[in-house]
């Protein structure tokens, strides 16, 4: 038994497919591909797959990662690639299948590119100002449905603003994750404005040393 790490992008209309739906869809593709996946034991055997970091509904991504557990160790990465490649639909472009270098739980940061359709310059400069604060206290919904105060700034590793685009590196992963949407929502709330239409692309994942997640 071994794992193979699958790298792909999620672009276009498929961004409206949620993480859970994509997960179910991948299981179907894997069945179709007939690659020798390992099936969980038990009453309802199913292949075992893990995503490095779930992607929010509506976000695009240049760098998606899914691990598949194989039953047959002699089955090569290249064969996995060749089996999956023709099955990946439009919007999910398969890049490569590799041996995992880092452990799936080691994702610590993610890059996001946030592009606004058309916003006044003052919007972008205001956003920049907000991010330059030493602390950005905001309310975050907890899993229990209550709200608690958190400092968004603690999650911001770095950022830059150019024209209509915000590039931002945020803490990511199981324990310390921030959705960039919360920053934009906080900005809108503070200024009592409606958030303009924007597109989010997650462009890269890193480990805690800011090394590209592989």
């Amino acid at each position: 038994m071994r794992s193979v790490r699958v790298f792909f992008e999620k672009k276009g209309d498929i961004k409206y497919i949620s993480h859970l739906d994509l997960n179910r869809f991948m299981l179907k593709i894997i069945r179709m591909s007939k690659i020798p996946v390992w099936y969980s034991e038990g009453f309802n055997p199913h292949p075992y797959i893990t995503f490095a970091l779930p992607l929010s509904l509506g976000f695009e991504s240049d760098y998606e990662i899914m691990d598949i557990r194989l039953d047959d160790d002699s089955f090569k990465n290249e064969e996995v690639y060749n089996s999956l490649k023709p099955l990946f639909p439009e919007g999910l472009k398969l890049f490569s299948c590799e041996d995992p270098v880092m452990k799936a739980g080691q994702v610590a940061y993610a890059d996001y590119k946030i592009e606004f359709d058309s916003v006044p310059d003052c919007y972008m400069s205001g956003l920049e100002q907000l991010l330059n604060n030493d602390a950005i206290i905001a309310k975050k919904k907890t899993k229990k449905g209550t709200y608690k105060d958190i400092d968004l700034k603690e999650f911001v590793k770095s950022f830059s603003v150019n024209d209509n685009t915000l590039l931002i590196t945020l803490s990511a992963g199981g324990s310390n994750n921030l959705n960039p949407k919360l920053i934009l929502d906080t900005f809108s709330q503070r200024n009592e404005i409606e958030t303009p239409y924007y597109k989010v692309t997650r462009t890269m994942l890193y480990n805690e040393n800011m090394e590209k997640f592989k």
């Binding site: 209309d13 949620s18 179907k28 509904l57 509506g58 639909p89």
Partner: peptide
């Protein structure tokens, strides 16, 4: 599309399935 993220299960309205 500008409103799609404000509706439930937007995947129902985009097509592009296998």
């Amino acid at each position: 599309e500008k409103h799609l993220l404000n509706v439930q299960k937007p995947g129902r309205y985009v097509g592009g399935e296998l």
